[in-house]
Write a protein that binds this DNA or RNA. Structure first.
Lengths: 205, 205
DNA sequence: TGTACATCAGTGAACGCGCGTTCACTGATGTAC
DNA sequence: TGTACATCAGTGAACGCGCGTTCACTGATGTAC
């Protein structure tokens, strides 16, 4: 903030922020190093003081995204305890909220072609996010009779798929494709119906 | 086929096919006119005999995709009649099959930034696909008591979201992200649980 | 407090490259007579 | 069947552009004395 002049002071983060904004508007392949550096008020060559190159910058943006994502999801999950049901619901809402509040991160994480195994840090951050989702599903599925209980990883994959689908198709404004309902409602009702199918919600709601 | 030489014979379709293969491997923004024309064995300038430019080529690919998609979905839907349940199940399976068999089309349709309203033909093809999906949902929801019946468009949006999510997260091999289950199983069980939640499938399966 | 100096974040010019698009052209094809 | 000719699908060279990356450099900063 206060530091300016020849030395930027916080160029690394400024570049990541610029990249995220660009990714948000132009997609992960539409983003260019040159434009990000220009946005940050710096020469393209300056990027190489902080990153190994283009891919490395995107990977770092994704890593920060996974970290925030895991934090938010974990916090939402804890905030609903000790009710497994409340914890699960909060987790689902946090998912959509994250995708809407941080679209650049979301795209870098799930739509860029960066492998999640690119660096150990990225893999760890991604795994942590995954584990929280699966933990929420596992907790909740404790309430299902064993013989009709699907594996927690399947349960969590279903919810994740529906959440991701709602984000991609109805939350992000695909050009020319109108959403019939607010995405929050769509996800809330969708998950509700699914959970009822598992016997976790009373048929009378 | 038989026609070759100075005149290509069927360059327009050859360019679309080349574009689809490229889109499939490099994403909608990674695709280049030059590479598509080279693949088709032709100079980049030749493209302009058949298309207005880059975007126009993608739009045409998407249009063909919507057409095939609507045909396949419609056929699957009809093949399950008169049972609404069978028709709906076939429709869901056709969705996934399309995404897997024609990934280039699927990406051009749902992941490119081409507006569905770009041309009247594209809008019409897209609407037809949409209508078939919604019709299947509406038919099936006839079997739900009116007072607990969600709007058909919401019903269809839920199923579409879950299908799209399964495709994006687990069917397409996101680099480094392993699918815990075959996507077909994931979608079949997911939709099954959802339908049970709507009271459309017996709790005992 | 003042000065000499090492550090290193950012500059600016340059590179080779592939892009989408344009243009005047060429030559294969198919039709009219 | 043979020839003249119009059509138009494709060529090839050229354009201006922005890309990611490299390099020797410069000058602001912070530390040692």
């Amino acid at each position: 903030m206060s530091k300016r002049g020849y030395h930027h002071g916080n160029l690394k983060q400024a570049l990541i922020d610029a990249a995220l904004t660009l990714i948000e508007t132009k997609g992960p392949t539409g983003f260019t190093l040159s434009e990000a550096s220009k946005t940050a008020g710096v020469t393209p060559a300056a990027v190489y003081r902080h990153f190994d190159g283009r891919e490395d910058l995107i990977a770092e943006a994704a890593r920060q995204g996974y970290d925030m994502f895991a934090d938010l999801i974990e916090f939402a999950y804890q905030s609903g305890q000790p009710s497994a049901m409340a914890a699960f619901g909060a987790t689902g809402r946090a998912y959509l909220a994250f995708a809407q509040k941080y679209p650049g991160h979301y795209i870098a994480m799930f739509e860029s072609s960066i492998s999640v195994n690119r660096t150990p840090e990225l893999a760890a951050a991604s795994k942590r996010a995954n584990d929280v989702l699966e933990k929420a599903a596992a907790d909740l599925s404790e309430h299902i009779p064993v013989e009709k209980r699907p594996p927690a990883s399947m349960f969590s994959a279903h919810i994740w798929a529906m959440s991701h689908g709602v984000v991609e198709l109805f939350a992000r404004n695909s050009p020319g494709r109108a959403s019939p309902f607010p995405p929050e409602d769509l996800l809330e009702t969708g998950i509700g119906i699914y959970l009822r199918g598992l016997g976790l919600i009373d048929a009378d709601d």
